[in-house]
């Protein structure tokens, strides 16, 4: 399971980027972006986001 940022909700607080063990999350002035090719799906960003602006990407079956 990988994760993505719901851009319309993101408040750019950087909680997600602070806990990402892969350094897979980059902050810009407007939003966080998760780079999926390095995301290992550890879910730390998902449980840390204070406003639930990160969601699961359903696995392709």
């Amino acid at each position: 399971m990988k994760y993505k940022v719901i851009e319309s909700l993101c408040d750019v607080c950087a909680c997600c980027a602070s806990v990402c063990p892969q350094n897979a999350i980059i902050m810009s002035e407007q939003k966080a972006t998760i780079f999926l090719d390095i995301c290992i799906g550890c879910a730390k960003c998902f449980i840390t986001c204070p406003i639930s602006a990160i969601e699961e990407i359903p696995d392709e079956s």
């Binding site: 950087a14 980027a17 806990v19 350094n23 980059i26 902050m27």
Partner: peptide, 18 residues
Amino acid sequence: GPESRIGKLAGIDTTLKL
């Protein structure tokens, strides 16, 4: 700030434990 991109780019592990 807490994610310190500068620290990361310089090779310092700035990742916070939960």
